[in-house]
């Protein structure tokens, strides 16, 4: 599997990664090589595999929808991580067009 430059641009856009032309070319080549290696999976017969097979044992683990009060210092640390705070609210860049 080889990805052309338009495909890699499309993947980068879907991934929300801003990449330079040089990076696009570089990652395009590397990802093509990885995908070619992964293509060996086509030789495995998976027709009979029940894809609804569950790998884990848990099934629908329910919990009460009750809020848990955070410790005050934890709440403060969480807010300290915000890149901007105004009037006790997290402030983000203006992004609406």
């Amino acid at each position: 599997m080889s990805l052309d430059i338009n495909e890699i641009k499309h993947i980068a856009a879907l991934s929300k990664l801003g990449l330079s032309e040089k990076e696009l070319k570089h990652y395009g080549e590397q990802l093509s090589a990885v995908l070619s290696y992964i293509d060996q999976l086509t030789e495995v017969d998976t027709q009979k595999v029940e894809t609804s097979t569950r790998l884990g044992e848990s099934y629908n683990v329910w919990a009460q929808d009750k809020p848990v009060v955070w410790e005050e210092d934890g709440r403060e640390i969480a807010l300290d991580q915000a890149l901007g705070i105004k009037d006790g609210q997290v402030k983000v860049p203006r992004v609406l067009e």
Binding site: I8, I11, A12, L14, S15, K16, L17, G18, E23, L31
Partner: peptide, 22 residues
């Protein structure tokens, strides 16, 4: 988004994000 993520993630994270997205 493009700028923050394009500059914030390293090469291997970018490769894997793209591979998974694909």
């Amino acid at each position: 988004y493009l700028k923050n993520r394009g500059e914030g993630f390293g090469p291997e994270a970018k490769r894997r994000i793209m591979l998974g997205t694909y």
